[in-house]
Amino acid sequence: MVIIERLYMNIYYLVAVILFIIGFHTMLTHNNLLKKIMGMNIMDTSLFLFFVAIGYIHGGQAPILREGVMQYVNPVPSALILTGIVISVSFTAFALALVVLLHKQYGTLDADKIIALRSKRHA
């Protein structure tokens, strides 16, 4: 019971780590290039969740100075994650552009087939 209680208390971290592993796994093992990009996004999102969860305090308010509010949420991670999201979006956009180019050149989105086509050209 203690374990379950501790897991429940750290539920955001737990979910973030699970999502990270899902994303990591998808990126490395799926052959479809689009799924690789999806995996990348899941991984990035899990990190955003992790970062924001660090700054979150249960019952805390938005960090705007007001009377009667004692606890504030730490705004630093949220601010950082704004930058993180921008980076993730630009990576995704660039990756998608490359996928379009690859599909034009090879006619497939399967990583294995692309490698096979490439080595056939070399031979």
């Binding site: 990270f20 990591f24 990126m27 490395l28 991984m43 990190l47 990576f91 660039f94 990756a95």
Partner: peptide
């Protein structure tokens, strides 16, 4: 790009 994104993660 894929491996680099993994590294960044």
């Amino acid at each position: 790009l894929v491996l680099s994104a993994l590294g960044s993660g």
